[in-house]
Design a protein around this nucleic acid. Structure first.
Length: 109
DNA sequence: GCCATGGCTAGTA
DNA sequence: GCCATGGCTAGTA
């Protein structure tokens, strides 16, 4: 497993229940601000194997990014169980629920 | 070549 | 709706 992948996994593990991070925020916290797409790939391919709180990562608008067949409803349910609320448009208020890592784990630049 | 982004234009109303 | 981005994996040699 490559260093960046490990860092991304570490960042995602650090998101507490009831909070979310965007793909871009995770990438930035892992030290590579433009690698949001890579975060997507990591979640897509290996979220299950690493026992990640995959449901706590959403897109820039605070929306669940996956489609119905991919588990959109499951993700919403998991978040709601943690106390995350959605507006009528299906968006999360990021100013309320966004997690900003305190230490940035030393990967910020 | 993948990918569950993100930031931008084009084009409709 | 288009396309640059980027770290990685699959698969060939």
């Amino acid at each position: 497993m490559q260093p960046f992948t490990e860092r991304v996994i570490g960042v995602i593990r650090g998101i507490p229940a009831g909070c979310v991070m965007t793909y871009g925020q995770v990438a930035a916290a892992a030290g590579s601000p433009r690698a949001a797409r890579q975060v997507v790939r990591i979640l897509h391919s290996s979220s299950a194997k690493h026992d990640l709180p995959w449901h706590r990562v959403v897109n820039k608008n605070g929306e669940i990014a996956i489609r119905e067949e991919e588990g959109n409803y499951t993700q919403r349910l998991l978040l709601e169980e943690e106390g995350v609320t959605f507006d009528p448009a299906g968006r999360i208020d990021l100013s309320e629920h966004a997690h900003t890592p305190e230490e940035d784990m030393g990967f910020e630049r």
